[in-house]
Each structure stands twice: as structure tokens, then as C-alpha cells.
């Protein structure tokens, strides 16, 4: 990769892109620290792919930032997963709201079924009560930004989707790509429901993990980043 040697010597403060993971508060007693699922291996492996597939000047390491940290505003791309267990504090709600309205771009991943949806919906309503969650059209530019993605696959967690084992978890049978748009039609939040892109990145090197899903996960991941950096 071009300029890799120079890149590795550079300070983290001057990169064009950081794969920033949202560090949020979860339900106490239940899956405490759900923000860190697949962390940091998924992030690192995805970044290897991202740097290989594109020419994005991306920082190679994981990069978690708390939602109530003002520094969050320096990183306009944010990834959050397992949001079915999210329980945001008031400063986190405010931090995320300001972040999104200022121009930040949030990708949600790895939450399944109606119960986890309900939890996420409650939390995101606290953040952006005035904006609706809508389906993202299959012709949306997000799905054309780098790869042409015609079909939304359900990406299973490791150990699923192999042989006769199902890809779904709980009652999350159908994968969905949803979003929240602001008043100007800008996509602020991309919601990957009933799918687990993070696991596919994390276990992409696993010979038992179906390559079809990891391919899709990388494609959608790259598209979301290229789109998020230009829209």
C-alpha cells in the first residue's frame, strides 16, 4: 500500500480517517460493556481490509471514544453495536445528539430481534426525538458508493449460517437497512438490524466462516465509510 511506511510513523492525530467505536453505557448487570463486543479484533481486521481495498488514509488501530467526550466531534464517523443493551446517560444522549446534528455519521450494527430493536428505538428517540427511522431504499447512493450492492444479506454471527444452521438470532429473521435522515435529507444514522457485520469482519480469516458473508460485510462497511466521508 502506498505510503505505508510513512503512515505507520505518523501520529494518530493527523489521519484522514479513524474507525471510531462508540463507547456507551449499557444496562447495568446485563451484558455490561456491550459496546466492546468483538473489540478490538473486528476493528483491526476491518481496517486492514479497508486500507487494502481503498486508498483511505485510515488509522490502523482501534479507536474507541466515549459519547460524552467532546473529542468525539473530531471524528465524524462512528460505529456502535449491540445497541439492544444500550442505556445512555443524559450526557451521552446530549453528546450524541450534538454530534449527529453537527454533521457526524453513526453506523449501528449487531442487534437482533424485536426486543433489542425496542431498546434501541427508545434510546435513539431520546437522542433524536424529532426524526423518524425509515427504510433505506435499495437504490440509495450508500449502496453504490464503492461497491454496487443489490441485496442486503443477513450476516450471521460466528458459528451460524454454516451447514443447516440458521443465520438469524432470536426473532430477527429478516435483515434490515434503515436510516435516520435530517431535515435536509442527510443520512445521519445507518441501522443494520438483524445482522452482524462486526462478526464477519472479526472472523473473516476463519476458514469456517462463509466467505460470502464476510465479503458482503466488507463491501457494506467500505460503502458506509466512503459514503459517510462524502455525504
Amino acid at each position: 500500500m502506498r505510503q505505508d511506511l510513512e503512515d505507520s510513523q505518523r501520529e494518530p492525530a493527523n489521519r484522514a480517517f479513524y474507525f471510531t467505536r462508540a463507547q456507551y453505557t449499557s444496562w447495568e448487570g446485563r451484558r455490561f460493556g456491550s459496546w466492546a463486543v468483538d473489540f478490538p479484533k473486528a476493528d483491526r481486521q476491518f481496517l486492514i481490509g479497508l486500507r487494502h481495498l481503498t486508498n483511505i488514509d485510515a488509522y490502523e488501530q482501534e479507536h474507541p471514544v466515549r459519547l460524552d467526550d467532546p473529542e468525539l466531534r473530531r471524528f465524524p464517523f462512528l460505529y456502535a453495536l449491540e445497541v439492544g443493551y444500550m442505556s445512555l446517560t443524559a450526557p451521552e444522549v446530549e453528546g450524541l445528539r450534538q454530534y449527529l446534528l453537527a454533521g457526524g455519521f453513526l453506523v449501528i450494527d449487531d442487534f437482533w430481534g424485536s426486543r433489542e430493536w425496542d431498546n434501541f428505538e427508545v434510546e435513539i428517540r431520546r437522542v433524536l426525538p424529532e426524526y423518524a427511522i425509515v427504510d433505506i431504499d435499495p437504490t440509495h447512493p450508500l449502496l453504490r458508493a464503492f461497491y454496487h450492492i443489490d441485496e442486503i444479506l443477513q450476516v450471521p454471527a460466528r458459528g451460524r449460517g454454516v451447514g443447516n444452521r440458521p443465520t438469524w438470532e432470536r426473532d430477527g429473521y429478516v435483515p434490515a437497512l434503515k436510516g435516520i435522515f435530517d431535515d435536509d435529507g442527510r443520512l445521519m444514522v445507518v441501522i443494520n438490524w438483524n445482522t452482524d457485520l462486526g462478526d464477519a469482519w472479526e472472523w473473516a480469516e476463519d476458514p469456517w466462516y462463509p466467505i460470502r458473508y464476510s465479503n458482503f460485510a466488507y463491501q457494506l462497511g467500505v460503502n458506509m465509510i466512503v459514503y459517510g466521508m462524502s455525504h
Binding site: A16, G103, A145, S230
Partner: peptide, 26 residues
């Protein structure tokens, strides 16, 4: 890909007199 593209486009999106066409090497 750089965030400058996103924010420049956004800054002038409402300007009826400017049309910014982006060609970005990805």
C-alpha cells in the same frame, strides 16, 4: 476519501448559484 468533501458539499448545498461536482478517487 476525506471528510473535507462531505463538509464542503454540505456548506454550499443550499447555494443556488454553485454546483460542486465531486470526483473522488477511492
Amino acid at each position: 476519501p476525506r471528510f473535507e468533501v462531505k463538509f464542503v458539499r454540505r456548506a454550499v448545498a443550499d447555494d443556488e448559484n454553485l454546483r460542486v461536482v465531486v470526483l473522488q478517487r477511492t
